[in-house]
Amino acid sequence: MTSPLLTVNNLRTSFRSDRGTVRAVDGVSFTLNRGEILGLVGESGSGKSMTAMSIMRLIPEPPGSVEADELRFDGIDLLALSERQMLDVRAARIAMIFQDPMRSLNPVLSVGRQLTETLRRHLALDGAAARRRAIELLEMVGIPMAKSRLGAYPHEFSGGMRQRVMIAIALSCNPSLLIADEATTALDVTVQAQIVDLIKTLVKDIGASVIWISHDLGLVANLCDRVNVMYAGRIVESGPIRDVFYRPSHGYTLGLMSCTPRIDLVGERLRPIEGLPPDLSRPMTLCPFLPRCAHSVDRCRTERPALIEEQPAHWASCFADLTGSWRQTT
């Protein structure tokens, strides 16, 4: 077996603030294989975006601070790179798509400019070649009359078209890893499905791996090979889609699933579980989900569960035995 594309080992991202140190990412470890699509789910504030931004090394330091035992991408130790070297990794090797395509594109620069600047920066294309490639890219993501749209500004595009432009930019340098942070959340459902299909096809073509961050469990179930469930800055459960979603081994995942009537339905958002996530600036000695958990056992109140491999390739950090609560449909 070849080595994984991305290895994240004990990633810790924190922010120093007046209220103390906020541990936004608190010891996250996972690997991503080549060609794999990995889902990252969890409720708001659980640290999904911060995990992605840490991998890109886009966390401003200070006030942020990013540490890890290992952050290895395609044989490169990302933490050992200088900021200057990291510039050559961004977009060229690891690309990112963000949630709101209106606000993610610069309103005062033409779409063509925003595409070609990436090409010129990383592929050293000159003006004419960059323009030709930009037109190809816009055609590739399905923008009609691409040539005449180069000079247009983001506000002249619809939301779905803007996200297509973002995808064109993200994939313009054939990255090996694409991180999509809620790439379809701001779009309406029909457009969402088109964008997901587009990304799926394109990453297959260029052979990129994907980290797909989403609130949409149904979408993750359809699209991803494996999924990481995050809670309070940690991965609480991880494994193949079938195992995690149909045989959850963590009280939080189970809570998410029981709040979701039908997992096979795309467009199913995370519904809130009763209670609030913990304050990330406080040290945690027990399971962070304990106050909200409906399945806690006595042991939960004395020690903190470690992330262990409960089934082959299926990891969870939970003491409770949840087999009795699994859905009958599986």
């Binding site: 890109m56 977009a91 060229a92 690309a95 963000f98 606000r103 993610s104 594109l105 920066r121 930019i169």
Partner: peptide, 10 residues
Amino acid sequence: DYIRTARAKG
């Protein structure tokens, strides 16, 4: 957000 995008473009 577009500044974050610009940074993410290297």
